[in-house]
Amino acid sequence: MHINELLFWFLTALALFSAMMVVFSKNPVHSVLWLIVVFMAITGHYIIMNAQFLAIVNMIVYAGAIMVLFLFVIMFMNLNAESEPQKSKWMKFAAVLSGGSLMLILIAALKDNGGFISSMRGEGSIGLIKNLGKVLFTDYVVPFEISSILFLSAMVGAVVLGKKDSSTIVS
């Protein structure tokens, strides 16, 4: 068995187990930490698929910035209590049933194809920063600039939503 396949199975098992723990752990802080493990496993998947730039961005943006934001909000609200109200047993059963049937239908619809992923010598240049940056700043420069405007508006929106009620602020 090649090292890539071993890594694939290890990272898959890690990702699925950690995703289960995200959903089923009682403490929200533990959920955030398990979600960081999921993102690390997905970063490993990107690396064995030769998408190095996306691996680095995934680790920095998701596992770094976004998860720290989640952790900050949870600790800010002092939510790390074990006594979260639960939904009823029947609601959980119905949720798992509907999710499982969705997965069953999607697997049945998608399982018949012969595509494969191999790692040959000399390939793998498309995932590097050189190629992606060249395409990003020539063909996709307009969506790139639009995304910067999106970030600006998201920042303004977060500040407006997050600040106190404006009637209490003396202008």
């Binding site: 990702a15 699925l16 995703a19 289960m20 995200v22 959903v23 999921v38 939904k87 609601m91 959980k92 119905a94 949720a95 798992v96 509907s98 999710g99 499982g100 969705l102 997965m103 999607l106 697997i107 998608l110």
Partner: peptide, 13 residues
């Protein structure tokens, strides 16, 4: 698909 389904189950439960 498995990750997506776990996400859906989490949203619903």
């Amino acid at each position: 698909l498995a990750l997506f389904t776990i996400g859906i189950v989490g949203v619903l439960t």
